[in-house]
Amino acid sequence: MKVLCVCGLGQGTSLILRMNVENVLKEMGVQADVEHTDVSTASSMPADYIVTSNELAQTLQGHSAQIVIVNNYFDLNEIKEKLKAVL
């Protein structure tokens, strides 16, 4: 299972999101390949799930991956609930 964490530049916020997504998946006991990237690279990368902000989700609507929108990147409970809902 591949999870992409996506932000505008692929250098800062997507890495923060990746750290917390990895924390949550580990806690849930889910094995996944988690990567981070920028929004334009993400559009041509295969993935099962894309985790990103509401702002960028609209740009990725044509992607085959299921898109998970996180509003608070520092709220591990929100990330967990959103991932649980789709996994």
Binding site: C7, G8, L9, G12, T13, I16, V39, T52, S53, E55, L56, N71, N72, Y73, F74, D75
Partner: peptide, 11 residues
């Protein structure tokens, strides 16, 4: 790219 880097409420 817009305000996507507003990562959490007020941050």
């Amino acid at each position: 790219k817009g305000p996507y880097f507003v990562l959490a409420p007020h941050i």
